[in-house]
Design a protein around this nucleic acid. Sequence first.
DNA 1: CCAATAGTTCAACTATTATCGAACCATGAA
DNA 2: TTCATGGTTCGATAATAGTTGAACTATTGG
Lengths: 108, 108
Amino acid sequence: MNSAEKLPHPEREDLELTEVLQALSDPTRLALVRELEAGPLDMVDCSALGPDTPKSTRSHQVKVLREAGVIISELHGRNRRLTLRRDDLNARFPGLMAAILSSAEEAG
Amino acid sequence: MNSAEKLPHPEREDLELTEVLQALSDPTRLALVRELEAGPLDMVDCSALGPDTPKSTRSHQVKVLREAGVIISELHGRNRRLTLRRDDLNARFPGLMAAILSSAEEAG
DNA sequence: CCAATAGTTCAACTATTATCGAACCATGAA
DNA sequence: TTCATGGTTCGATAATAGTTGAACTATTGG
């Protein structure tokens, strides 16, 4: 009876700026976060992760974002649903995500 | 007769978000940038770079910030003067530096 | 000109990250 | 219960990033 997580997520107060920046400094992960701006998405539906990318690689990218506290990754049926941790990020680093998400798309 | 640079700096329009984030994702470099918030500083006077740190290491850290477009590094007498590229960063990524610089100090 | 200071560059080394196949695990559907 | 789906984990390897000593450059002061 636990449709929630299983994988560890850092507490809000444990989020570290340098780790968040590091997690977001990768184009693929940044694109994924931009996708999540619109709302939660199942991992399998994230186009940023690319359908060609092997499962293990996708899993790794998501893990980095989760461990940095940028997203929540919870079990949802047989999928994994990804949610941007807006509130936690805004509480800890006010304005950061707004600035990052609103900035121009790279290398389009 | 050239008291200015010599080392290459990227143009404002070439600054890339992921590179900036990467450059700032290191605690030492972030601390240096925080120090530069108050105004330009000669490299030798930057406490963030630590007096124990070898010259080559300090030079490397500064290089990463320069190449990402976060700072300007110009010759100033026999020193190198570091300046935060506030205007360029604000133009390209509005609110980003404000959010980063105002966020709580890490691991204090 | 000579020495000292401040820094760059290079090359070697270390360490951290990323990529990906293979094996495994949980859920939902038939 | 069995199978397909969607993912995790592990281990190996590749790629990238950081650290540092040594040699070199540029500037100031004597």
